[in-house]
Every structure is written in structure tokens, then in C-alpha cells.
């Protein structure tokens, strides 16, 4: 009897989450999947087929764009990790009390403004008549104005900047839980700083690294504004293609198929990443 009641309570508590999952995630995806299977054969005439998926694989442009997006996102993730790790280590291990809170807040500051404003901020810095170009000219380091916008490096800068917090937070959390005496024990047993990093700190921080990387990778892959605004004429990004299909081409069928391919391929990359780092999604999410 009590057991039944406990079960009922459990399901009632779970219900809002289930409804949320079902109506906001499962149903739209199901709808999108059905749309992606419709092949347009004439005005208001559709047939069920995989033709939209075939378009992706037959047109090099599309899978090239996907490969480029994935490659750039992986690179952005790696760079974010590379830059974020020392920052997180510094915050978690070398600071205390108020300094720690202040530094943590400083990582948050960029998120007080919208992504659009943040991106415009970078445009002001990087453009030909922008701050950096002017400072370089003023210092006499360059002869004329330099354009730092509208290239892959600018996209990368924007992506790393936008993602930094999502890498630093899980890293700080896991590094915080690393007992200082483990590091001291490592030194005491004769290890160099690098050996300690490799054998003790990184293995301990692995769940944080993996969850940070998953979040950053997904954010980069799904980013739309940053590549378009900072990348300019070289801003080929898969989400941009999806947007174009839905909005400017009125081709929902192809757009849905692209959306599903993005979902599938990004899941695949995350899966491979987890396998390579020998982490499981459950473990990663539980620890951070």
C-alpha cells in the first residue's frame, strides 16, 4: 500500500519532466523527422523517401560544410580546453576566498550581455578600422590598417570566447575536488610538474574535461551568429545552411534532413570522444 503510494508520488513528481521532454523535445523532433522524409515532387505534392538525405551525401558542398563545421568545432573545443585548463587550475587551486569568487565572476562577465553584443564587441576590436588595428598602427608595428575580421581565426576567437565559461565551470568543479595532498604526494614521490599534470591532475579532472568538451563542442557546432558575423564571406557553417534552407529557401524538407544529420553526426562525434577518453556519459554528468 505504502509502496503503491510511493510509486504514485514518484510518477507524479516525474510527470512535469516527462511532459516537458515529450512536448518540447520528443514531439518536435518526431515532427521534424517526418518532414525530412517528404520529398517534394511538385507544387504541394510530396512523396515519402530519403531523397533529402541523399541530397546531403550527393552534394559535396553540404558534407564539406559539415566536415568544416565539425573540424572547426573540434579545434575550438581543443583550444578552449587548452586555454581554460590553466585558468580553471588557477581558480581552483591557487586562489582562496574572495579572489576565487572575483575570478569566477570575471569569467561570467561576458555573459551579462547577449551573444550578439559580445560578437559586435569582437567586431569592433578586430575590424580594419577597429581598436587592435589602430593600436598596432599607433605603435608603429604595422604600416597600414590590418583586417583581422572575416576569416577562420576570427571565428575561432569568437567561439573560444563564447565557450570559455562552459569549459571553466566544470573544470573548476572537478579540480576543486582534487585533494591538494595528492599533488604534494606526487611531488614527494619524485614526480615533475608535468608528470603530476599527466598522471594525477588530468585523470582526476577527466569527467570535467569531457563534460566541458561536450558542452563546448555542441555550442560551437550549433552556433549561428558568431560564424556569420565574424566569418563574413568565409562564414560557411552548417547551422547557417539549415537556417537558409528553412528561412530563405522555404525548403523545410531539406532543412529537417540537415537538422537530423547534424543531430546524428554530432552525437557520433561525442560518442567517439567518450570512447577515446574512456569515459561514460553517465559518469561524466554525475561527477560535475
Amino acid at each position: 500500500m505504502a509502496n503503491d503510494r510511493a510509486k504514485l508520488t514518484f510518477w507524479l513528481l516525474l510527470a512535469p519532466l516527462m511532459i516537458w521532454l515529450l512536448t518540447l523535445i520528443v514531439l518536435p523532433h518526431l515532427g521534424m523527422f517526418l518532414v525530412s522524409l517528404r520529398e517534394k515532387v511538385g507544387v504541394r505534392e510530396y512523396e515519402t523517401s530519403f531523397a533529402n538525405y541523399a541530397v546531403f551525401f550527393n552534394e559535396p558542398l553540404y558534407w564539406n560544410t559539415f566536415a568544416r563545421t565539425a573540424y572547426m568545432s573540434v579545434t575550438a573545443t581543443a583550444l578552449t580546453l587548452f586555454i581554460g585548463f590553466p585558468i580553471a587550475y588557477y581558480i581552483a587551486k591557487l586562489t582562496r576566498g574572495r579572489t576565487k569568487t572575483t575570478l569566477f565572476l570575471m569569467c561570467l562577465i561576458p555573459f551579462w550581455v547577449s551573444e550578439l553584443v559580445r560578437t559586435f564587441g569582437w567586431m569592433i576590436l578586430l575590424r580594419e578600422t577597429g581598436v587592435i588595428s589602430n593600436v598596432l598602427q599607433y605603435l608603429g608595428l604595422v604600416g597600414g590598417p590590418v583586417e583581422m575580421l572575416y576569416n577562420d581565426a576570427a571565428i575561432m576567437t569568437g567561439l573560444v570566447y563564447t565557450s570559455m565559461l562552459f569549459m571553466v565551470v566544470p573544470l573548476v568543479t572537478t579540480l576543486d575536488s582534487l585533494d591538494d595532498s595528492l599533488i604534494e604526494a606526487g611531488y614527494d614521490l619524485g614526480a615533475s610538474g608535468f608528470a603530476i599534470l599527466r598522471e594525477i591532475v588530468i585523470p582526476h579532472a577527466m569527467p570535467g574535461i569531457v563534460s566541458g568538451c561536450i558542452v563546448v563542442f555542441m555550442l560551437s557546432l550549433g552556433n549561428y551568429l558568431t560564424p556569420i558575423l565574424l566569418g563574413g564571406k568565409d562564414s560557411l557553417w552548417f547551422t547557417g545552411l539549415i537556417y537558409n534552407q528553412f528561412i530563405t529557401r522555404f525548403n523545410w524538407e531539406l532543412g529537417s534532413a540537415f537538422g537530423f544529420l547534424l543531430l546524428g553526426l554530432s552525437s557520433l562525434i561525442v560518442f567517439v570522444g567518450l570512447k577515446l577518453s574512456r569515459q561514460s556519459l553517465g559518469k561524466t554528468m554525475a561527477q560535475t
Partner: peptide, 16 residues
């Protein structure tokens, strides 16, 4: 109807 798909593909290729 239909011409926009043609143009869209061309624009995508120019972008790439």
C-alpha cells in the same frame, strides 16, 4: 515556384 531552389544552390556554392 521552384526557381528559388535553383538560386539557393548557386548562392550556397558561391558562399563555399
Amino acid at each position: 515556384a521552384g526557381l528559388e531552389a535553383l538560386e539557393g544552390a548557386a548562392l550556397d556554392r558561391i558562399n563555399a
